[in-house]
């Protein structure tokens, strides 16, 4: 990315607990270390570990940053979780010529059809790199390496100090992850017309003030059932009917209450709600349940 007196805006798409906030913070600290101006802040919401979250960065060479408002028209989007592209419009508002950095097991040729616009696409198998280097599939620092490769928004070396500050003894693994991602990130130019966003981030509709009942009472009991929490998961439980004795322990221990019996008496999780916590698989007596990675 050319160095201009311009504010570069970045939107991170991750899930609660994946460390997107940390990524954005490290990026801002590294940029400030380089003498730039930078900002990092999350969208502050009630969502918990596993839920989709947004985090924002602004970076500029010379211009102090004043905007305290979410990034609507990013120059760059970074996607920590490949599943997010199916549940949220990650490229919403992405500028012409903008950059998409995504964690995926797929190669550029296999994933580029998911994006329709004249953008630069950078792909990296961050989950695998993170497993190798850090030992856990937490990809936030790995994705920083990919971001730097795709955009040269900062120098890779500038991350060294902030990583050390943040991770102490674990800094080396994270730094290795960052460097490996820098090497392994594959980049391609996409073409196409930027389409209007089909989805917005606010998937819920909200009433007008006149529609609210006195005291904002909610008369529809349990209407949160409409809310899909199944988007949060990266793993799904799969039942092996050979081993299942239909005891229902999985049903009993499910924090979502989303496991039910099908007509044959076997249990299954409702994918609309299942967050993929893995309790059912862990507690199953007969080891009939396996957690399988979502794709």
């Amino acid at each position: 990315m050319e160095k201009r007196d311009k504010i570069i805006e970045i939107r991170w798409h991750g899930r609660g607990g994946q460390g997107a906030v940390t990524s954005a913070e490290l990026l801002a600290l590294a940029a400030i270390e380089e003498g730039k101006f930078a900002q990092a802040f999350p969208s502050f919401g009630p969502e918990r570990r596993g839920a989709p979250v947004l985090v924002f960065n602004r970076v500029s060479d010379k211009t102090p940053i004043r905007a305290r408002v979410s990034v609507i028209n990013p120059d760059i989007v970074v996607i920590l979780d490949p599943g997010l592209i199916y549940i949220t419009d990650v490229t919403a508002g992405l500028k012409e010529g903008g950059v998409i950095v995504i964690n995926t097991t797929k190669a550029v040729v296999d994933i580029k059809s998911e994006f329709n616009g004249s953008w630069k696409l950078a792909v990296v198998n961050a989950t695998s790199i993170a497993r190798d280097t850090i030992g856990v599939p937490i990809v936030n620092t790995t994705m920083l390496g990919a971001l730097v490769k795709a955009t040269d928004i900062i120098e890779l070396e500038s991350l060294a100090e902030p990583l050390k500050e943040r991770f102490g003894a674990r800094a080396k693994g994270n730094s290795d992850a960052c460097h490996r991602a820098y090497k392994e990130t594959e980049i391609a130019e996409l073409s196409g017309v930027v389409k209007k966003p089909t989805k917005t981030f606010e998937t819920e509709t909200f009433p007008s003030w006149q529609e609210l009942l006195p005291g904002s009472v909610i008369p529809e009991a349990g209407n949160a059932k409409q809310y899909r929490t199944g988007d949060w998961k990266s793993e799904s439980p799969i039942w092996d009917h050979q081993k299942c004795i239909k005891c229902g322990i999985c049903y009993l221990f499910c924090p979502e209450g989303c496991i039910g019996q099908n007509k044959d008496g076997y249990f299954e999780a409702n994918p609309y709600y299942c967050k993929g916590c893995g309790i059912c698989a862990r507690e199953c007596w007969t080891e009939a349940i396996k957690m399988v990675e979502e794709e």
């Binding site: 409409q226 929490t229 949060w232 924090p255 409702n270």
Partner: peptide, 20 residues
């Protein structure tokens, strides 16, 4: 279920299970 699914507790939340 009187504590309906669709709640936003963390995955694996023991408190949500206890409430349920």
């Amino acid at each position: 279920e009187y504590f309906a699914p669709g709640h936003r507790a963390c995955m694996g939340c023991g408190e949500a299970l206890a409430v349920r």
